[in-house]
């Protein structure tokens, strides 16, 4: 085996190690996983019931359609939350456990390290999101008669590339602010979704927010998935939402790694790459 092949093999094993460790933690925190899932279900229900509530208050709306619109928004919010949280844990959890110095002094490329976190986040996030969708859907009558689930999955998968890029950028916050960095990740998630039409159409937003919506991958993800599930649009019909996602993904992934690299250098200069307390 050539030296380059050995190096690639080592990096792939490292990537496997990151995924494997996250799987161990899910297993070890299984009770908390269930608790958190129940909380997510409750949280999602409070949003999805709004459509019925508006009708009960005398509003006139297509309850089935609006319930499905809200459900898609809430589920995407949850999915994005999982991706950002896991990527933020690249630093946050390691710092809390005190393992951060061992992990960051190991000969694993940071790009591969972050890709490992991203790969786990995607698989875990998709499983949780599918479960959440299924559980919440059982509470309501939804407008899914024409749904193209495959097309919705394709849009979500492509959008995930962009989400990972943005998530890697937010993962830098705990590096440069050990105390508040994790919360900054949540703020970034909220900012991304508020301009992207998470529970409403982007067209109702002020002009400057609509401008921001154009560069948010969540805008195209939400619109594409709703179009696929509510109207049965296929992958071809969703190209208008897919190509912006691809462009944002191509830009955001390298940008995310570059931002994280700068953050790591900053942390190394200021002695911040160490355990808390």
């Amino acid at each position: 085996m050539t030296r380059a092949a050995i190096a690639v093999r080592h990096q792939l094993i490292g990537l496997l190690g990151v995924v494997e460790r996250n799987a161990y933690l899910v297993k070890r925190y299984a009770i908390w996983e269930v608790t958190w899932f129940v909380w997510t279900v409750a949280n999602t229900l409070t949003i999805v019931f709004i459509a019925k509530g508006v009708q009960a208050a005398g509003g006139t709306l297509d309850v089935k359609r609006e319930t499905t619109v809200l459900l898609i928004g809430a589920v995407i919010w949850s999915y994005l939350g999982i991706l950002f949280e896991i990527l933020t844990q690249t630093v946050g959890w390691e710092r809390w456990e005190g393992t951060i110095e061992y992990t960051f002094m190991a000969p694993l490329s940071r790009v591969v390290h972050l890709l490992g976190m991203g790969a786990f986040a995607l698989v875990y996030g998709l499983i949780r999101t599918a479960l959440l969708f299924g559980v919440i859907a059982s509470f309501f009558t939804l407008q899914l008669g024409r749904a193209d689930f495959w097309a919705a999955f394709v849009v979500l998968a492509i959008a995930s590339i962009s989400f990972l890029g943005v998530g890697v950028m937010t993962a830098v916050f705990p590096l440069i602010s050990p105390e508040k960095g994790t919360q900054l990740g949540f703020i970034a998630q909220g900012m991304l979704l508020v301009v992207s039409g998470v529970y409403y159409s982007v067209s109702i937003l002020p002009g400057w927010m609509q401008a921001l919506a154009k560069i948010s991958p969540a805008t195209y993800a939400l619109r594409g998935i709703r179009h696929a599930l509510l109207d049965g649009a296929g992958v071809g019909a969703l190209w208008g939402d897919i190509w912006p996602l691809l462009v944002i993904g191509v830009v955001s992934i390298p940008l995310g790694f570059a931002v994280f690299h700068r953050g790591e250098i900053y942390a190394k200069k200021h002695g911040m790459l160490k355990r808390s307390g």
Partner: peptide
Amino acid sequence: ENLSYAARFYGLG
């Protein structure tokens, strides 16, 4: 589990 995690970072399968 902890040792496996550390070992992977150094290329141990």
